[in-house]
Amino acid sequence: MAKSRPVRGATLNEASSRFNLPGREADGDWLDARADLDDAPPPLRTTVTVERARTIITRNQSPDISFDRSINPYRGCEHGCIYCFARPTHAYLDLSPGLDFESRLFAKPDAPALLRAELGKRGYVCRPIAFGTNTDPYQPIEAEWRITRGCIEVLAEHDHPLTITTKSNRVTRDLDILAPMAAKGLAAVMVSVTSLDPRIAMTVEPRAPHPEKRLQAVRQLADAGVPVFVSLSPVIPHVTDHELEHILERAAAAGARTAFFLPVRLPHEVSPLFRAWLDAHFPDRAGKVMATIQSIRGGKDNDPNFHTRFRGHGPWAELLRTRFRMAARRYGLDQQVLRLRTDLFRPPSGPQGELF
């Protein structure tokens, strides 16, 4: 059984086999040599590397996603959520989707300037930009780097709509920008709450804020007039599914407008990482958890197909949907999705235009 590192999500740090990268031991340096002697994994330090991106707006044409563009100020995420579907992206950097993903991070400090330039391009068509679609824009390093805030400042300056998905109460730090944008119909925030049990949350999402802090953030956002939604994604069978109704009740009490959920997804390298995590933290139910996930995913660990990848199928998936619908209706969380305005957008004038 793999040993868990203190306050980390993954128990492994293996390189991806999809790209024929060389295998390596967890962490691969003197710290692991020390662990062999001390019989305990040492703390793993977080490092941040500057990435000089050429563009910052990522486009997608997925038919089952409600947005067509997004911004990710960071690569990797220190929250360390074991189920994170973005983990495989670290393989493209010749790094492990395991511990590397949550400890070897990349920041894009040029993001606000790149964003301003892209908004000013001829022919740009305004549609809401989504933050938090890959890694959390308010993960701990945002406190120092403030790249997410810089991007929001640019969007606010030009009345461009945005959505934010986060597990962090740090989003409330930017209420001075988000509240005025929301008053114009330009901003909405989705807060992720997957468990109210601090012991489970600390295991599933080891460096994300306490669930109560997230619910407090929902209340602060709602009180400031920012449309706020709650995501229960992902629901992990036999680990967090029993909390579904209670989370919806607490979300409604905190002022959320609506909510949604997705069954857990295990694409590419996430599956072996998740299995190892189950063996380490929930050995008594690991087989049951995986059997139920496979029943939702057509007999496999993951279903990559459009539409069904977010819904799942079979009796277990249908039971989850029924429970969710009933609870959402009971607590008034079955309202229509908010439509953000795009007609207020004013593109950057450019250096020449600013002369007049």
Score class of each variant (00 low, 15 high):
residue 72 N to A: 12
residue 96 S to R: 09
residue 123 G to N: 07
residue 166 T to C: 14
residue 94 D to N: 11
residue 162 L to W: 02
residue 88 P to K: 12
residue 84 C to Y: 05
residue 162 L to Y: 04
residue 98 G to R: 09
residue 156 A to P: 02
residue 105 L to N: 10
residue 147 I to A: 14
residue 96 S to W: 01
residue 157 E to A: 11
residue 139 Q to A: 09
residue 150 G to R: 13
residue 167 K to G: 07
residue 154 V to R: 15
residue 124 Y to T: 01
residue 116 R to E: 05
residue 76 G to V: 00
residue 127 R to A: 12
residue 108 K to D: 01
residue 70 S to K: 10
residue 177 I to Q: 14
residue 66 S to Y: 13
residue 131 F to Q: 14
residue 160 H to G: 05
residue 122 R to I: 00
residue 151 C to W: 04
residue 174 D to L: 02
residue 175 L to A: 11
residue 133 T to H: 15
residue 150 G to Q: 07
residue 171 V to E: 13
residue 123 G to P: 02
residue 140 P to A: 14
residue 91 A to V: 00
residue 103 S to A: 13
residue 83 Y to F: 08
residue 164 I to E: 14
residue 105 L to I: 02
residue 148 T to H: 15
residue 77 C to Q: 06
residue 121 K to E: 08
residue 103 S to K: 12
residue 130 A to V: 00
residue 131 F to A: 09
residue 115 L to S: 10
residue 80 G to K: 06
residue 69 R to A: 08
residue 77 C to L: 04
residue 69 R to P: 01
residue 124 Y to F: 11
residue 141 I to R: 15
residue 107 A to Q: 07
residue 116 R to V: 00
residue 139 Q to P: 02
residue 126 C to E: 08
residue 102 E to N: 07
residue 75 R to I: 00
residue 103 S to N: 14
residue 151 C to P: 03
residue 132 G to Q: 08
residue 97 P to M: 12
residue 161 P to R: 14
residue 128 P to E: 13
residue 107 A to R: 09
residue 170 R to A: 11
residue 155 L to Q: 05
residue 129 I to E: 15
residue 123 G to R: 12
residue 151 C to M: 07
residue 174 D to S: 06
residue 152 I to G: 10
residue 87 R to K: 07
residue 146 R to I: 00
residue 108 K to H: 05
residue 149 R to Q: 05
residue 71 I to T: 06
residue 79 H to G: 08
residue 119 L to R: 14
residue 108 K to N: 03
residue 105 L to E: 08
residue 159 D to F: 03
residue 122 R to Q: 11
residue 133 T to D: 14
residue 128 P to Y: 15
residue 140 P to V: 01
residue 95 L to W: 06
residue 151 C to K: 09
residue 176 D to S: 09
residue 137 P to L: 09
residue 174 D to K: 07
residue 92 Y to Q: 06
residue 175 L to I: 01
residue 86 A to Q: 04
residue 123 G to Q: 08
residue 87 R to M: 01
residue 73 P to L: 06
residue 109 P to D: 09
residue 103 S to V: 01
residue 83 Y to G: 10
residue 166 T to Y: 09
residue 73 P to D: 07
residue 98 G to E: 04
residue 90 H to Y: 06
residue 112 P to C: 10
